[in-house]
């Protein structure tokens, strides 16, 4: 009657094994890429054009030299989009949740639609709408369309988790609407806002469709540069560029994981 191992334990171990295998499959390409960037060329029997720079970090210096303009543009873009998305999204979410007005429901639905629409359609719409003249402002607009829904979602969730009674209590204690917002609502929202900022940062930095189609040789973004590197440069250079591209996302992602954000699964489309 007695079994050496219970079937349930076998199922559990099998499930964990499958999961770990999946994780390994998903991480393996990254490991190979990282190896490629540090081991330089010889692995694949090719001489890389960046090898001349020398040193363990030579490739990275080479890539940064190649794409410094694009990196700066992307940093500027992220630096503009993150505060803008928060400044627009937070009061909007507050209005939708706490002070609904006629038409606010449809407005919210409208604001969420970019998540359900292919990124390329949005990018093409922006490009053609602006008469095929890409500008920095257009890039910002495209990124905002993508990131605003994320802010709305996270802040809404945070607001829903908070009891309205806290705000009512503040009002009963003599705080006006502004003081209530500043002293009670906002401080309670800080984790949600941090999460929003990280999400917007990760999405905006990695976003490709808008960043690529609305980029010009003069206003080159890093994701667009990354693509050009993939098509023109050797593997070690491409690998190094990939690592540089990932460098800011990975810490942001780990922080998002720690804060438990689930909203980004849909927002981060490719």
């Amino acid at each position: 009657m007695s079994l050496p191992v219970s079937p349930r334990r076998v199922a559990r171990m099998a499930g964990i094994a499958v999961t770990v295998t999946l994780a390994v499959c998903l991480v393996a390409p990254l490991v190979v890429t990282a190896a490629g960037a540090f081991v330089h060329a010889d692995w694949y029997g090719q001489r890389s054009e960046g090898a001349a720079a020398g040193g363990a970090l030579g490739l990275f210096r080479y890539v940064l030299g190649l794409w410094s303009g694009a990196v700066v543009t992307s940093l500027r873009l992220v630096g503009t989009v993150v505060p803008l998305a928060l400044f627009i999204g937070t009061p909007a979410a507050f209005a939708f949740r706490r002070r609904p007005f006629p038409g606010s429901g449809s407005l919210e639905t409208l604001a969420m639609t970019p998540l359900a629409i292919p990124g390329i359609a949005l990018a093409v719409g922006l490009l053609l709408g602006a008469g095929r003249t890409p500008r920095f402002g257009l890039l910002v607009a495209g990124h905002l369309a993508y990131t605003l829904p994320l802010v709305l979602k996270t802040v809404s969730n945070a607001l829903e988790g908070e009891s309205v009674d806290l705000e009512r209590a503040a009002r009963s204690l003599g705080a006006g609407p502004w003081k209530t917002a500043a002293w009670v609502t906002l401080p309670r929202l800080v984790p949600g806002l941090v999460l929003s900022a990280l999400l917007v940062f990760a999405v905006s930095w990695g976003e490709f469709n808008v960043s690529f189609l609305l980029a010009t040789p003069l206003v080159q973004t890093f994701p667009a540069g990354l693509y050009l590197t993939y098509t023109t440069n050797s593997f070690p250079v491409a690998a190094a560029a990939t690592l540089i591209f990932l460098a800011p996302i990975l810490p942001a992602f780990l922080a998002i994981q720690a804060l438990g954000g689930e909203e980004f699964r849909r927002g981060l489309s490719s």
């Binding site: 990254l30 190979v32 990354l226 693509y227 690998a239 990939t242 994981q257 980004f264 699964r265 490719s270």
Partner: peptide
């Protein structure tokens, strides 16, 4: 497992080539 959520499409394409 959740890491690739942050990757844009070109990056995924590159990883498959790798």
């Amino acid at each position: 497992v959740s890491l690739p959520l942050t990757f844009s499409g070109v990056l995924v394409g590159f990883l498959v080539i790798v």
